[in-house]
Design a protein around this nucleic acid. Structure first.
Lengths: 243, 243
DNA sequence: AAGTGGTCTAGACCACGAC
DNA sequence: TCGTGGTCTAGACCACTTA
């Protein structure tokens, strides 16, 4: 008897297939077994198997050709497509070939600006918890991340927050809130005074800024993020696939 | 008898539901009819209906709550999530509230640089067709788009190319090639001399650059794109949803 | 003609939330 | 307890590619 909840069959099959693609059992560019072969092997219905393959196809890992077969995307190695990977900075750093490290710079109380209050559906001046963190790629600072959460969501003292955790995990663990969706706005800016030192960049260089708003499945704004991304070191790439 | 291919039931249902969400029949934040009600109304199986709802959920249009119901995302109005919308500039301009216009600046022959040849799996010096286009938002230039296609793909004279068409349509019509997936790299740069005039920007301003590579379902590189995006006028936003 | 993926159905059972 | 969405099945038929 295990405390870990049993994953769905589909999730298990997905993990298996992702593993085989990752480790080269199904090599990039090669043809995979047919749907019926796979569903036989795993002992699942074809319908279940197909939901998994559809997901892999949307993520760009495989290409499907009616009347022919299913092929592994020859570019799999440079695809970091996962649900919500846009703000999964650790994964981005890894797929760029570096070792990721997170340093928590500050966990402090602030008051909401008008813009923040508007985005979070609270009042200007309301209290926020602000997390400032720096992500490193092989000891080199590459992403400066600032997140704010309305204090009213917090169920524990702010001092208890583990600065290594992903924002979704922080919201889950300390606020009992789950993220249902996020809207990210991507902009290009010149590094400000306060940022350039932390990212070890020259002044007047352009960096990417990812402004994120996180929402619950009640359409409730949970948190905001402003992330300075050094695109001279890290590549930010997206994969789009068509059926 | 119609020349237009009949769309799948799922596609028709999707179009219906998207329409109802768009026109407010299902208002932002409100609860939608249950799966069984909808499948009854449309006369489709629940399985078919669910594939549609799953797609809408991934695109962030709806939120699903087990044991409760399906709700319209209260932010639908600012969501422009569609397959491959990242390089659907016309749609981005529209959802930002402007009228889009495309001006074709040049269609010319060039030779592949080493970088281009590498990305397109051809030899440096091989001939390319280069398309340079400028996208306007309400008469204001906002995106400078440059695409290159290996000349060997072309089935017609380059002069025949309609500069108003989407790159996927150009590839389909003049090259008989379909795009299966694309990899986009997003970067932040300072506008170059040649670009700043066209986009009517001051020098030394930061703009977004979207470098795209398009591939066929044979894993074959079809075309490249370099797009200068004025993020001071247009918002580039992405929606991520979790199941 | 044979094999592949694409579409769709009808129905069973489960997990969860609200009442 | 009831209705909701979540998971899964077995099987039918279609569309397409390849040979």
């Amino acid at each position: 008897m295990s405390l870990i909840q049993t994953k769905s069959i589909a999730d298990q099959v997905e993990e298996l297939l992702r593993g085989r693609i990752r480790d080269g059992t199904y090599a990039p560019g090669s043809r995979m077994p047919s749907e019926s072969e796979l569903s036989d092997e795993f002992g699942v219905s074809r319908a279940t198997l197909r939901t998994v393959l559809a997901k892999l196809a949307v993520n760009g890992l495989i290409l499907r050709k009616q009347g022919d077969g299913t092929y592994v995307n020859i570019k799999v190695r440079e695809i970091n497509a996962h649900q919500g990977y846009l703000w999964e900075f650790v994964r981005i750093i890894e797929t760029n070939g570096y070792k990721p490290t997170i340093r928590s710079l500050a966990i402090e109380k602030k008051v909401a600006s008008e813009e923040q209050a508007n985005a979070l559906a609270i009042e200007p001046g309301d209290e926020l918890i602000s997390l400032t963190r720096l992500f490193y790629a092989d000891e080199r600072p590459v992403i400066l991340a600032r997140n704010v959460i309305p204090t009213t969501f917090l169920r524990e003292a702010a001092e208890h927050i583990d600065g290594q955790l992903h924002i979704s995990e922080i919201l889950k663990r300390y606020c009992h809130q789950n993220i249902a969706f996020a809207i990210t706005e991507i902009r290009s800016v010149l590094v400000e005074e306060r940022v350039h030192q932390l990212l070890a960049k020259e002044l007047d260089q352009a960096v990417l800024v990812l402004k994120v708003a996180f929402y619950s499945n009640q359409n409730l704004p949970l948190a905001l993020g402003v992330n300075y991304f050094d695109d001279k070191v890290l590549r930010l790439s997206l994969v789009q696939a068509w059926s």
